[in-house]
């Protein structure tokens, strides 16, 4: 067993006026690498009031997105060996979103932006008797887009989203906007582009690339945004 100091952002709306950092000492077993989520469970044994979201514990559900030693990531698939600085692990809630309690943030603004891009297939042609077919080449265009689990690690690492979470769609929303623009079965391309054609929705992206650097699934919102921008440009030309 080795001692580890876990510094955790605490805030209880019932009792606290302001959030504060609390150090919790935990004993970490030697000889294996825990995930940050395992360390949170150890910390919760010391203080059962500690609050965080989690579900699948394998990077599929996207519930435990948080700021781990400065970098957004999923606690369940971030190894402690990569996350700790010296003998210390610092855990804060995702930046920029209102904190409900401890590491739990209110994701309403994030979901509102996702809803805005109409994240579902739109096709006004009569439905065929079987599925709408797609060539393997067209299907391949969706790789790197459909895998997003909406954990919000990217959007909450994006300064453009911090300053304009109500007007800038953000990397997660725009990756999905491109996912439907790129889908050969979707016929609402013109309407989708018209909805994005303003100074904020897409063009607040300054190519900072924090999104690409933190995405736990290795996806690339910056490239998707580049594709949308090119499409807007060719449409207006």
């Amino acid at each position: 067993m080795t001692a580890l100091t876990v510094s955790i952002y605490r805030y209880n709306p019932e009792t606290d006026k302001k959030p504060y950092m609390q150090d919790i000492e935990v004993d970490v077993p030697e000889g294996k690498d825990l995930m940050v989520l395992d360390v949170l469970h150890l910390a919760k044994e010391k203080d059962p009031a500690l609050t965080y979201r989690r579900s699948c514990r394998e990077g599929v559900c996207g519930s435990d997105g948080m700021n781990i030693s400065g970098k957004n990531g999923l606690a369940c698939i971030t190894p402690l060996s990569e996350a700790k600085k010296g003998n210390k692990l610092v855990l804060r809630p995702l930046p920029g979103l209102p904190v409900v309690r401890d590491l739990v943030v209110d994701m309403s603004l994030f979901y509102k932006q996702y809803e805005k891009i109409k994240p579902y297939l739109q096709n006004d042609t009569p439905a065929p008797a079987i599925e709408r077919l797609q060539s393997p080449e067209d299907r391949a265009k969706l790789d790197g887009l459909y895998e997003c689990i909406l954990c919000a690690c990217c959007s909450t690492s994006c300064p453009s989203f911090w300053w304009n979470p109500d007007k800038f769609v953000g990397p997660a929303g725009l990756l999905q906007a491109w996912r439907f623009l790129a889908d050969s079965r979707d016929t609402a391309t013109a309407e989708r582009l018209a909805d994005l054609d303003d100074p904020f929705s897409v063009f607040r992206c300054r190519g900072i690339m924090n999104c690409v650097n933190v995405c736990p699934k290795g996806l690339n919102p910056t490239r998707a945004i580049g594709h949308i921008r090119s499409m807007l440009l060719t449409q207006s030309a």
Binding site: P13, K17, N67, I208, M209, N213
Partner: peptide, 23 residues
Amino acid sequence: MNNNRPVNLDLTTIWLPITGVVS
């Protein structure tokens, strides 16, 4: 009950990758 929710946005605690530094 404090309804004024805090926001974690202390920039000194958030990692900025080299692409962000350049920006």
